[in-house]
Write a protein that binds this DNA or RNA. Sequence first.
DNA 1: AAGTGGTCTAGACCACTTT
DNA 2: AAGTGGTCTAGACCACTTC
Lengths: 235, 235
Amino acid sequence: MNLPIYRHLFNQLKDKILRGELKPGDMLQSENELAQQYSTSRLTVRKSLSMLDNEGFITSFPGKGYYIIEPDHSKYTLLFNELNSGSKNNLYSKLLGVNATNPDAAICQKLQISCDHKVVVILRLLYSNEGPIAYDVKYIPYDRGRPIVEKAIEYAALPDMVAKKSSPFAIKKELCIYIEKSNQEINKSLCLPESEPLLVVEQSLYDYENKPIGLGKTYYGGEHGKIRAYSNMRE
Amino acid sequence: MNLPIYRHLFNQLKDKILRGELKPGDMLQSENELAQQYSTSRLTVRKSLSMLDNEGFITSFPGKGYYIIEPDHSKYTLLFNELNSGSKNNLYSKLLGVNATNPDAAICQKLQISCDHKVVVILRLLYSNEGPIAYDVKYIPYDRGRPIVEKAIEYAALPDMVAKKSSPFAIKKELCIYIEKSNQEINKSLCLPESEPLLVVEQSLYDYENKPIGLGKTYYGGEHGKIRAYSNMRE
DNA sequence: AAGTGGTCTAGACCACTTT
DNA sequence: AAGTGGTCTAGACCACTTC
């Protein structure tokens, strides 16, 4: 094993917290006390404590000390990629159509453009070996000399479609998950009964100045419409 | 302003990454070079770099150097608390009923208990000033001398209901979001048309040994069924 | 052999809180 | 005044990669 000292101290403290020996509100020993106890330097202790801080277990107040935090039970991590739908490993994409049109008012509003602004609309069907999984629509404002690479249209996820001169880190993303009434064309493409409601994952992308640069709507039907999120302090 | 040195260096590097001056795959200067350039010590430089690492911008390889990461575009943060439904600040809770029963097979399976195991079922209606928002059901296995505080039943979120002797950090949580066919009783409670489908947020809680300790299902109808998630490297 | 990051020491000064 | 965390210095040795 031979863990570094800071790792060892980190594990011990984390363990005490997970076992409930240290509870929210409790104060930790001071840096100097811990350094003495573990026969190490203050810096090494600080390394352990800063890791516990980063992982959301403790916080510190100058002149006072370190305290166990009240955990935030409402925070989850959600992994979403329309081309990599969780459980299904082998997800394929089939291009149904591409065109530049004036979309309806709701889409224009979300993209913060006027109604006469041209928008590239990309329609795709996502399917596995067992059949269709989802119907996918992208709306990308057609302007600013932002080229959309041909290859990307069929096989790329939205963030990669709108990849720009600037940094991929500068993109801000939002998801909104909701039910949409059945849509004749989509339900047909997904081999679903006409009246079946669809689970929509709507993905909005914004650039560095918070301008919308892309909107994606992925429609899931039946058993495929399960979006998962998780939260775990233990790992 | 008078920022500490490590903060200053962190901001400068983060800025270069966000502006695209440093792209994924690029290598950073070495710790020693940066320390010289900024007339500071290696430790101070390392502090800046470890912060960039923590925030997912860079990674390092011993003997090689620091590299800009390819950002993970599929990761989102989702905030969910059945009693604090995002936009609506004032959310009230009305207890509809509590009983100990044997729930159906699907619930038993999710709770990993046999079908004759008693389960506490808590039914609540969540509403704002403008009317009902959601219908909420909790299933809590009735055993192990886990007391459920009376006050908690009406006004607590699931993680607080199953608060235990052990630590609140030890709980593992999962969410699953999906559509469920309309339910006569629920739709009526939510003042919805009989046939309206419902958006379900299913919350599973596990203890330190990965044993299920609680299951919550929150049913949203119509306009209230919008679950949001976000991702932002810029903040 | 030289350079890189990973770990660690033994100090120092500061602003802050507590007594 | 004494103790706390926040910042910082100037070293050191190690394992690793590159040349």
